[in-house]
């Protein structure tokens, strides 16, 4: 199965991480067991084959490792192969791997840097936005206060005008009432004189002049306040 490095694949991977891990463990356990079993079967077979082909060839007794006959060729081929490996690794293989790893590290660093820069920019934008918001709020507050002040002033002005007007009207009304009252009072004297004249005539039978009854009413009014 080919492992394509798509973002979706990566997400799948992350989502299934737990199960993948468990699955991987099981896979490795099985693989190891399989390798061990097949190798040991091979060993059994090789032991058999070795003992079969063995007669005669082996120069007898002792460890083959200590046989100095085979010293030169082992050392020569060890030198050839190891030097070859060293040259291949140091000239071709390792620099390439190092390059790939470095490139990846560079890309990661670059991406992290860019992410940091973007984060900073976002932070700045947020700061600016908040500043703007505070300014707007303060401005709104100011406008509100100003309007309030204006309205209060207008109200007070109108109230003052109203008060003056009211006072004038009250005064007018009061003077009108006083005039009416005066007028009424003057009518009271005439009526009282008339009533007195009529009462005197009715009770005593005397005819009293209008002037006389008027004078009498006046006296009464004077004494009674």
């Amino acid at each position: 199965m080919k492992n394509k490095a798509t973002p979706l694949g990566a997400m799948d991977h992350m989502a299934n991480r737990g199960s993948v891990k468990a699955h991987g463990k099981r896979f490795w356990r099985r693989a190891m067991a399989g390798v061990a079993v097949s190798l040991s079967m091979g060993w059994a077979q090789s032991a058999f084959a070795a003992s079969d082909a063995h007669d005669g060839e082996h120069s007898g007794g002792g460890m083959p490792q200590l046989n100095p006959d085979y010293f030169d060729e082992q050392i020569i081929w060890l030198a050839i192969t190891f030097i070859a490996l060293y040259v291949i690794m140091s000239r071709f293989a390792l620099p390439k791997v190092g390059e790939v790893l470095e490139e990846r590290q560079r890309k990661i660093d670059r991406d992290v840097d860019r992410a940091n820069a973007l984060k900073e920019e976002a932070e700045q934008v947020k700061c600016a936005y908040e500043q703007e918001l505070t300014n707007a709020r303060a401005q709104a507050q100011d406008q509100l206060r100003e309007t309030n002040d204006n309205l209060t002033a207008q109200l007070r002005e109108r109230e003052e005008i109203q008060a003056v007007e009211d006072a004038k009207r009250i005064e007018e009304a009061e003077s009108a009432i006083a005039a009416k009252r005066q007028e009424a009072l003057s009518h009271v004297r005439g009526i009282a004189a008339g009533v007195a004249q009529a009462a005197v005539q009715k009770i005593t039978g005397f005819d009293v002049t209008e002037e006389a009854s008027g004078a009498a009413v006046d006296t009464v009014l004077k004494t009674q306040g």
Binding site: S46, A50, D52, D55, E57, H58, M63, P64, Y70
Partner: peptide, 14 residues
């Protein structure tokens, strides 16, 4: 058949 002999050091033969 010939009896197989056990020689575990044979594997180290050059």
């Amino acid at each position: 058949t010939q009896e197989p002999k056990l020689d575990p050091l044979h594997q180290f033969d050059i």
